[in-house]
């Protein structure tokens, strides 16, 4: 091995990464939609790898069935060049795919973790086995805010930010329809955001094992038209 070979390998190695960052497309607004598209792409990716591999596998099986009980294999030893080629070429193919997927996933990740400025914030405190929602923008005094149990009413058409914690064990606030979840933990504040475009109801479940009633720790997101939501939150606030 000499210097030239190493530097060549370094250049070839960095190519897939550069290519991947260049190919990865534009940002999208809604993380859930982006997730669906990315998922579709991943499925095409892994299914084509799987199918190609399976075809090769089955072909090898059929072609090489023993013809007589004493037949032996005739595989030969690879030359050093063949050996290195059979290592580096597949390795770089896999790496190219990995870096492409990593770059794509990075975009979605940025979308998921950067909350739009016009968001509406709700605080979540999970406890065995309920989700308690507090509206920090609807308070009479500093710690007397609108609170709801297991029913998250939000205005449709606005990004919703959930700041979450837990009062006992680790829970998880999962909203399958919006393709997002995050643990809520005692002593820590985590966050997630989602974008309910139209009014509707969406299931919320707990996805971190939390004891006896883990499977029954259910809540729902109710996205309401903004005017209705404003009316609702005003009534709740006045009832405090």
């Amino acid at each position: 091995m000499n210097k030239k070979l190493w530097s060549l390998m370094a250049v070839v190695g960095s190519l897939p990464f550069l290519a991947a960052t260049a190919i990865a497309g534009e940002l999208q607004q809604d993380p859930a939609e982006h997730w669906d598209e990315f998922w579709h792409e991943i499925m095409i990716d892994i299914i084509s790898i799987g199918v190609v591999f399976m075809i090769c596998f089955i072909y090898v099986l059929i072609r090489n069935i023993a013809q007589s009980p004493d037949q032996e294999g005739t595989g030969t030893k690879l030359t050093p060049l063949q050996s290195i080629g059979w290592t580096l070429i597949p390795a770089f193919c896999f790496m190219a795919d990995d870096f492409y997927l990593a770059a794509q996933s990075w975009q979605l990740f940025n979308l998921q973790r950067n909350v739009p400025a016009n968001h509406y914030e709700v605080k979540v405190t999970a406890s065995m086995w309920n989700f308690n929602y507090t509206y920090p923008n609807a308070c009479k005094e500093a710690d007397n805010c609108v609170e709801v149990m297991n029913e998250l009413r939000v205005p449709a058409g606005k990004p919703i930010l959930l700041r979450m914690t837990s009062s006992d064990v680790i829970h998880n606030h999962s909203i399958p329809d919006f393709r997002i979840l995050e643990d809520s933990m005692p002593g820590r504040v985590t966050y997630l955001w989602f974008y309910p475009k139209t009014p509707g109801e969406h299931l919320v479940t707990c996805k971190e094992y939390c004891g006896t009633m883990h499977s029954k720790m259910i809540s729902k997101v109710i996205a309401m038209p903004e005017s209705e939501f404003d009316k609702w939150i005003e009534t709740e606030k006045n009832d405090l």
Partner: peptide, 18 residues
């Protein structure tokens, strides 16, 4: 192959612990 979607944090944010 089904480990590949799980490997990506952003994708895992929808299917984690499922």
């Amino acid at each position: 192959l089904t480990g590949i979607p799980n490997a990506m944090a952003s994708v895992d944010h929808a299917i984690h612990d499922g």
